[in-house]
């Protein structure tokens, strides 16, 4: 199967690979995986007190499309508010990367990772307020 140029570009030069401190109350972590292909994806966001994502990092062990999807997601996340971030849809990723039908689940995984990172952050914040 041929990868699109954009997928190859992201897979060869992934943006924002790395780790944020998951104990930091301003960091939300999403850890997701697709068992059918054995992929695992971690996506983290650091949110400012004003509710804007100031940093995003990812680490993905999987195929080129999974790496490209999460790399693109971190690029898109930076500078967005949480509400704006949760509007990112897997179909946007598919369009941008020209993913073929067999690789759509990679973009779904990235959307899931964004959602669970946001959810993790919000859970931490409400725990902090409750304390």
């Amino acid at each position: 199967m041929a990868y699109s140029e954009k997928v190859i570009e992201h897979a060869e030069n992934p943006r924002n690979v790395g780790t944020l401190d998951k104990e930091d109350p301003n960091v939300g972590t999403g850890l997701v995986g697709a068992p059918a292909c054995g992929d695992v994806m971690r996506l983290q966001i650091k949110v400012s007190d004003a509710g804007v994502i100031e940093d995003a990092k990812f680490k993905t062990f999987g195929c080129g499309s999974a790496i490209a999807s999460s790399s693109l997601a971190t690029e898109w996340l930076k500078g967005r508010t949480l509400d704006e971030a949760s509007e990112i849809r897997n179909t946007d990723i598919v369009k941008e990367l020209n993913l073929p039908p067999v690789k759509i689940h990679c973009s779904v995984l990235a959307e899931d990772a964004i959602k669970s990172a946001i959810e993790d952050f919000r859970k931490k914040q409400s725990a902090k307020r409750g304390a």
């Binding site: 997701v32 995986g33 059918a36 695992v40 689940h105 779904v108």
Partner: peptide, 21 residues
């Protein structure tokens, strides 16, 4: 069957992420 839409447990994902790192 195990399909694309299935999501593994967090504990497994943590273990796998650690192993892969």
């Amino acid at each position: 069957a195990v399909g694309d839409a299935d999501r593994p447990s967090q504990s497994l994902l943590m273990e796998v992420m650690e192993l892969r790192e």
